[in-house]
Each structure stands twice: as C-alpha cells, then as structure tokens.
Write a protein that binds this DNA or RNA. Structure first.
Length: 110
DNA sequence: GCCATGACGGAGC
DNA sequence: TGCTCCGCCATGG
C-alpha cells in the first residue's frame, strides 16, 4: 500500500487538454506542497495504474525528463500535443493557458 | 533502524 | 535572468 494513492487519484482528475504542476498535485493530494513526493510517485507509476502522468509537469511548465520511465520526455510531449496542448519553441507549456483549475470543493481527502 | 536518493519548489545570490 | 542551496517526506538498500 502506498501513500501515493491520493496522488494518483488527483492526477486522474486532470481533464484532457490541461496540465498540472507537481506542487499543485501535492497540494491537492494533501501533501502540503511536497512536490518531491509527487515526482517520486510518478517516478514509480506504471501503465497498469492508468494515471495520466504526462499531464503533470514542473512549475516552470517544462517536461522533466526521466530516462528510467517507460516513456521519455518525447512521449510525454507527444501525448500532450495529441490532447491539444501547444508547446513553445523552448518546449514549454503555457501554464497560464493549460494549467488545470480544480474545483473549490475538490475531494482532496474526502 | 539508519543513510542516501529523488519527474520539485521557492528564496537567495 | 540564470544558477545554486535548502527544505520536505517517503522509498529502497
């Protein structure tokens, strides 16, 4: 059993065409902002969990590469582009445009 | 049970 | 504007 369940649950709430930052996920998952745990959780996520990990990026709107993941930054970018997310020339996402805005009554814990 | 590491974030220089 | 350092918590050896 892992405490990552909350993290996965939150990530699964991210709608198509939108993205969320690690810090945002951490907050929604009641981690208080411990983005590291989110990154670690996504690090050990597997396709079996059916978690849209590709919609989670860092606070800079960039995709963090992970050579150990089954999908590299190229795949993540590709998946996002398929969902309608546009990347800047620097390979960054406009958080101001695609950042997921969770409802005020988001069931982070309940 | 302790030590080291990790898809980050924010402040400081 | 860009880089570096510290902090936070959980997992793995």
């Amino acid at each position: 059993m892992s405490s990552y369940e909350a993290i996965y649950a939150v990530v699964r709430q991210i709608p198509v065409g939108q993205v969320a930052t690690y810090g945002q996920i951490a907050q929604l998952a009641n981690l208080g902002g411990q983005a590291r745990l989110v990154g670690y959780a996504l690090y050990r996520v597997t396709p079996d969990l059916a978690v849209p990990w590709h919609r989670v990026i860092n606070a800079k709107g960039e995709i963090s590469e992970s050579p150990f993941r089954y999908g590299n930054d190229q795949l993540q970018r590709h998946l996002l582009e398929q969902e309608g997310v546009q990347f800047s020339a620097a390979g960054k996402v406009s958080l101001a445009t695609y950042r997921w805005q969770p409802p005020s009554d988001f069931p982070a814990d309940a």
